[in-house]
């Protein structure tokens, strides 16, 4: 088994680096095509624009690892945003209270998804697809075509202020990613999320309340949609029912690119952050190059397919490597 050709070694190296490899390639291409890419201002800008996807991707990593998927997150963000805007503008709530309620409202939306999936035993895909439509509908009903803007300065502070040179949304996203990493690897919640997605029967056999953990995953996702709604609304200083469309596609793509398996059971929080950065850099580069918005959609879509394909190829290489390892072990035990 040790007769590995150089080509195979390179394959394995690329596979091991995984999303990190794609990130490096994307950065190199961006730097080559746009001289302005490597300025501090632009790099911070990329982090700033990626921060909302990082927040969502952390939650989505748990949902997908647990064997689920949440297609409703864009609609959740929009619904939470308009409801929160209503609290602040129409009802005159203090900003802090409105934000706290926004996060709890998001957790409530997630709980609805989770309870419908586990209670009615319906596929995650179908339930959250329906929720995508329903939540968007509620957002439209609530706002009745209104666009909220001109938020109090205390609210806009979050989106536009920098601490130690970094925008607050970026700081929030990076701290959140670190917390997510710890939850994933160091808590019962993380461990049972992997178990439920990896082998549901085994999880049940070991006495893990699988439905409860499924609901927790969607509640976490909903809470993070609340956080994302706060960040995006504050950054744009505007809120409307049609906002945040396509967030689910970008977030899922970032997570899958990052090395989380669509089939559940294994995931990578850091990889999801890398995936979000990759998409952020691609978007940023196209804006700097002056690519037309419609074409940007086309290119983004194609690049997502490419990156996910690369990830699948990577999984295959890794699986082959592990099969070889098994053979090796068998050999060792024979001798």
């Amino acid at each position: 088994m040790n007769d590995t050709t150089p080509a195979k070694s390179v394959q394995k190296l690329i596979a091991r680096l995984g999303p990190g490899f794609v990130l490096i390639v994307v950065i190199l291409v961006a730097a080559f095509m746009v001289p302005r890419f490597f300025t501090t201002l632009n790099l911070i800008n990329v982090l700033y624009q990626s921060s909302i996807y990082i927040v969502l991707a952390v939650g989505m990593t748990f949902v997908i690892t647990g064997g689920g998927i949440d297609l409703s997150i864009g609609s959740q963000v929009a619904l939470i945003s308009v409801v929160m805007s209503g609290f602040i503008h129409a009802w005159g709530w203090p900003v802090g209270l409105a934000m706290v309620v926004a996060i709890f409202f998001g957790m409530g939306l997630g709980a609805v998804n989770g309870f419908v999936i586990t209670g009615l035993r319906m596929p995650d895909f179908i339930v959250t697809l329906a929720a995508m439509e329903t939540f968007r509908g509620f957002a439209l009903v609530h706002s009745a075509g209104k666009i909220w803007f001109d938020f109090p300065s205390s609210f806009r502070y979050i989106g536009i202020t920098r601490w130690a040179g970094l925008p607050i949304p970026t700081i929030v996203a990076l701290i959140l990613a670190a917390i997510g990493y710890y939850i994933y690897h160091k808590t019962h919640f993380g461990r049972y999320t992997i178990a439920v997605g990896g082998n549901r029967t085994a999880a049940i056999y070991c006495g893990i309340p699988v439905s409860r953990y499924k609901v927790f995953q969607y509640v976490l996702m909903g809470g993070l949609c609340g956080l994302a709604a706060i960040l995006i609304t504050s950054r744009l200083d505007s809120s409307q029912a049609t906002m945040a469309q396509g967030y689910e596609i970008h977030t899922i793509a970032a997570v899958i690119m990052g090395g989380t398996s669509l089939f559940g059971g294994s995931g990578n929080v850091v990889g999801s952050v890398v995936g979000a950065l990759i998409l952020g850099i691609i978007a940023n580069t196209m804006v700097l190059l002056g690519v037309d918005y419609f074409w940007r959609l086309v290119v983004t879509g194609l690049l997502i397919v490419l990156a996910v394909g690369l990830n699948q190829w990577r999984e295959n290489v890794m699986r082959e490597a592990s099969l070889e390892a098994v053979k090796e072990t068998a050999k060792e035990s024979t001798s």
């Binding site: 710890y182 690897h185 160091k186 808590t187 019962h188 993380g190 461990r191 992997i194 178990a195 990896g198 082998n199 085994a202 999880a203 070991c206 006495g207 893990i208 398996s261 059971g265 294994s266």
Partner: peptide, 27 residues
């Protein structure tokens, strides 16, 4: 077994060893 978890995580699945920290349990 959960294929994607390591051996020790499988042995302790459902009855993990954890330590309390700040009112939470960490594996």
């Amino acid at each position: 077994l959960v294929d994607t978890l390591e051996a020790s995580a499988n042995v302790f699945l459902g009855s993990e060893i954890s330590n309390p920290l700040l009112g939470m349990q960490f594996l």
